[in-house]
Design a protein around this nucleic acid. Structure first.
Lengths: 154, 154
DNA sequence: ACATATTGATTGCATATGCAAGTTATCTTG
DNA sequence: CAAGATAACTTGCATATGCAATCAATATGT
């Protein structure tokens, strides 16, 4: 039974401490993760946004641009430019939806699939490193807590 | 006793699912958090980088630019431009360190302190909302797990 | 059926970001 | 102490980002 740390994470409290602020820890972890992942992807020749798109298309394709943007948590406008780059690089192709005239669908090319395979192989060790010391319970807790944070934000 | 979810978060596993990928959940939560916080700060007239700097200086000041950059997990080059903006806006002042000729220290102006107070008041409700349903144990777990993720990344 | 609202995609534009190169000051090593 | 290494800061430059405005297609309401 230890102290309740919640007040220390409250920006409105005079006991506030940055290191008890979930948002700070979130950004810090995500930021460092980005740096590490980026260095793993560099040899493959893809950047982080590209990688995120490939991961999402790897689960299901084709998908509308807006859907991929939402999944990747990337602004739709930014996603347009990412799609441009990826098409130019020959990683994906765009095609109009057959059922909805507004929609442009994205699908991976063979090259895109190859890059995805390579990126998965390259990032898997990082994943293993990151969850070092995490029991199955710790891991489940982490997913649960992050999900609840997200849900609490509407 | 439930299933071990760790393999589902491994990009190298063929059972990989984005929604079991801690990095994805991290980015998603941080991203949504940013959007919400940004909307709270807009009426006060400060952006997220500015807010992060004020929060850090609120704990201790003056501080060297590099120190603030590290704390805020912001690239030093980017931090330079943020400092420029904040000085121009009258939120902080720069002063050469008395003990180290290389160092430029940052300190808040009265206006900066006022903005910090206002920002804290504005973001506190968001914090309360985010940790809704979090017990003291949940919260402590969250801080611990995020810290361990971070530490595992070197 | 028609008018209105919504959704998806797209682009111009201003700004933010960060790499790389350079300057100055301090530290470290022989 | 001198020389090289390191650290803090600074800036030019290319690129990424996202707001806001626009157009087209579909959905909704009367």
């Amino acid at each position: 039974m230890s102290e309740d740390l919640r007040p220390f994470g409250d920006p409105g409290s005079n006991r506030f401490r940055v290191d008890a602020y979930p948002f700070y820890l979130l950004n810090r972890a995500a930021s460092r993760y980005n740096v590490v992942i980026e260095s793993q992807l560099r040899p493959i020749g893809i950047d982080i946004p590209t990688w995120r798109v490939l991961m999402i298309l790897g689960e299901r394709e084709p998908l509308p641009i807006a859907h991929v943007a939402k999944s990747a948590v990337i602004n739709i406008s930014t996603m347009m430019r990412i799609v441009e780059r990826m098409v130019k690089a020959g990683l994906i192709v765009t095609q109009p939806s057959e059922t909805d005239g507004r929609v442009t669908e994205l699908a991976m090319t063979d090259l895109g699939q190859e890059k995805l395979v390579a990126a998965r192989a390259a990032t898997s060790p990082v994943y293993q490193q990151i969850i070092t010391g995490f029991s199955a319970e710790d891991f489940a807790q982490l997913l649960d807590l992050l999900g609840r944070l997200h849900d609490n934000l509407d």
